[in-house]
C-alpha cells in the first residue's frame, strides 16, 4: 500500500498541470452558505483543529479505515504524511490530552451516509464519485 501511495504522490506532482488536485474530493453536507477549504485548512481539520463553517456548524472530520486505499491517497495528497507518521502524530495528540483521531468508516458508502445525516461532518471520496444532492465538494477549490 505504501508503494501505491508513493506512486500516487509522484504522479500528483508530476501531472499537476494536467489534472490539478483531482484525485480526492473533500465533501460535506450542503449548508446555506457556500464555502470552500484550502489544503492547509483541510490538513488542520484532519490533524485535529476544527473550524466554524457557520455560527452553528463546526467542522468534524471523519476518515476511512486503514485498509481503504483512498485513505492512502488522501494521506499523500492532502495531509502530506505517511500513515505511520500520522499514527505517531495522533499518539502525541492523544497522550498529551489535546485531540483524538477522526472516527473511521470502512467504506465510502458508510462515510457518505454519515455525512448526509450530520451537519459539519467532513469526509473524502475519490474524485468523480457520484454524490447525493445534499453533499457538496469543498476541496479542491475551483
Amino acid at each position: 500500500m505504501k508503494s501505491l501511495t508513493k506512486v500516487v504522490l509522484f504522479f500528483s506532482f508530476a501531472i499537476t498541470s494536467v489534472f490539478p488536485q483531482d484525485h480526492i474530493w473533500v465533501i460535506t453536507q450542503k449548508l446555506d452558505k457556500d464555502f470552500t477549504l484550502s489544503k492547509q485548512q483541510v490538513r488542520q481539520i484532519y490533524l485535529g483543529i476544527n473550524i466554524d463553517f457557520t455560527d452553528e456548524v463546526t467542522s468534524s472530520a471523519i476518515t476511512l479505515s486503514r485498509k481503504n486505499q483512498v485513505r492512502s491517497q488522501f494521506n499523500a495528497q492532502v495531509i502530506g504524511l505517511t500513515e505511520s507518521r500520522i499514527q505517531s502524530y495522533w499518539a502525541h495528540m492523544r497522550f498529551s490530552s489535546r485531540n483524538k483521531p477522526p472516527k473511521e468508516y470502512d467504506s465510502v458508502s458508510s462515510l457518505l451516509e454519515h455525512i448526509k445525516t450530520t451537519k459539519g461532518s467532513i469526509g473524502y471520496v475519490p474524485a468523480q464519485t457520484v454524490l447525493p444532492e445534499s453533499i457538496v465538494v469543498i476541496y479542491p477549490e475551483n
Binding site: 499514527q87 505517531s88 502524530y89 499518539a91 502525541h92 497522550f95 498529551s96 490530552s97
Partner: peptide, 18 residues
C-alpha cells in the same frame, strides 16, 4: 497537567510518538 517546555516534553514517555 504535563509540562510543555519543549516540543516532545509532554510525550517523553510515549516512545511511539517520536
Amino acid at each position: 497537567l504535563r509540562t510543555s517546555f519543549f516540543t516532545y516534553s509532554d510525550v517523553l514517555d510515549v516512545g511511539y510518538a517520536y
